[in-house]
Write a protein that binds this DNA or RNA. Structure first.
Lengths: 200, 200
DNA sequence: GCTGCAGGTTAACCGCGGTTCACTACGGAG
DNA sequence: CTCCGTAGTGAACCGCGGTTAACCTGCAGC
């Protein structure tokens, strides 16, 4: 434990990112573009200016990289979502708005992570995949709790399907990259998501 | 050219599907579950009761299988979408409803194809990928034309982003599989999509 | 100034999976 | 009956890519 080491699981040192963080970020970008299976260890290395095997100084293997990437994403979503919803007070409309703002913000800020998150879950070892799915499920339940109060007559299954549909809507950002500038995109998605989440 | 041969590019013989069709369908299922790169030729063969190399009697290779799969999907979407929108008359509201019904129907009927369609596009050879993207673009433009009449003040880029968001919403079905029965799911998605497409 | 470790490098290893090959079984046409 | 094209099999080939090994380098601390 040196003095400069951080809790790499949660906050990346954005000023002068450690090699480890550089690798994770570059890998996320490449994985998003081509899919994790199509990206070689050498590619990831080259993207940060080292050779392939150098990766093994920082990660146990390619799988471990992907696992940490997906776990972090799921954790950030769950933590951020929970935080925002409690900060929004007791009004379910305000809570929904807070969740939508958060998800839109995250999707616009990290399109690559969004892409990898639901494309490459299947390439994970069973244990890691289960862990990620657990976190995802908890995040979904945060949404479901809010949606259930907005739609008292809907059963939980319907709320869950509704939540997934709103995710799909917001997470479409990687598909419409460069169409609109960020504020316009955020406004459009927020409006659409609120309408979709509220209708009926 | 024997007398029993059909135009395999567009209509599958659903009664007694040819081996070729069986393979494509099984491959779509497997690709959707694990991703095309993670599925071996032997797996696809086994799924239709045949060894791996037998595939090469029907396809030039694994890539050709995926290419045909994605091309067919894109063609079906474009053809179906165009057809429905002309059948809906001149009213843009009716046209939108027709497009949404079509997309919902397709997504609920073919969740595996939906998944493969936007997950494995990157594993295609450049020429095939370009062809698929061309078809996708034309399908998007069908939507954009309708959305533009509903939102006269929006520029085309905003309509395109809106179309992608609606696709994301509807194509979320693979993520909420088994939550609701088909009619309930269709009603929910249709309502949400209309709200999202119309708002503002 | 040695020592040691963190971080790299190049070369080699090796298993997996797509593809090819040589051969077989069979059903229909002449 | 023979011939031939279609569909399938098991074995072999081979290249790619993840991983490991052995060796280098520079800087921190005694």
């Amino acid at each position: 434990m040196t003095g400069t080491e951080r809790d790499t699981a949660l906050h990346a040192d954005v000023d002068r990112p450690s090699r480890r963080e550089q690798i994770l970020q570059a890998a996320a970008q490449l994985f998003a573009e081509r899919g994790s299976r199509a990206v070689g260890v050498d590619d990831v290395g080259a993207a940060v200016g080292v050779t392939g095997p150098a990766i093994y100084r920082h990660f146990a293997g390619k799988d471990a990289m992907l696992a940490e990437m997906l776990l972090r994403i799921s954790e950030r979503l769950l933590a951020g979502g929970s935080e925002r919803v409690t900060a929004a007070g007791a009004d379910p409309v305000a809570q929904l708005r807070a969740l939508i703002d958060f998800q839109v913000e995250f999707a616009l800020e990290n399109p690559a992570l969004i892409t990898v998150h639901d494309r490459d879950l299947g390439s994970l070892a069973d244990a890691d995949a289960a862990q990620v799915r657990r976190l995802q499920r908890r995040y979904v339940e945060v949404w479901v709790a809010v949606l259930a109060r907005l739609h008292p007559t809907s059963d939980p299954a319907a709320c869950r399907a509704r939540a997934h549909a709103v995710f799909g809507l917001i997470n479409s950002t990687p598909h419409s990259a460069g169409q609109l500038d960020r504020p316009a995109m955020a406004a459009l998605l927020t409006g659409m998501a609120e309408a979709a989440a509220t209708v009926c």
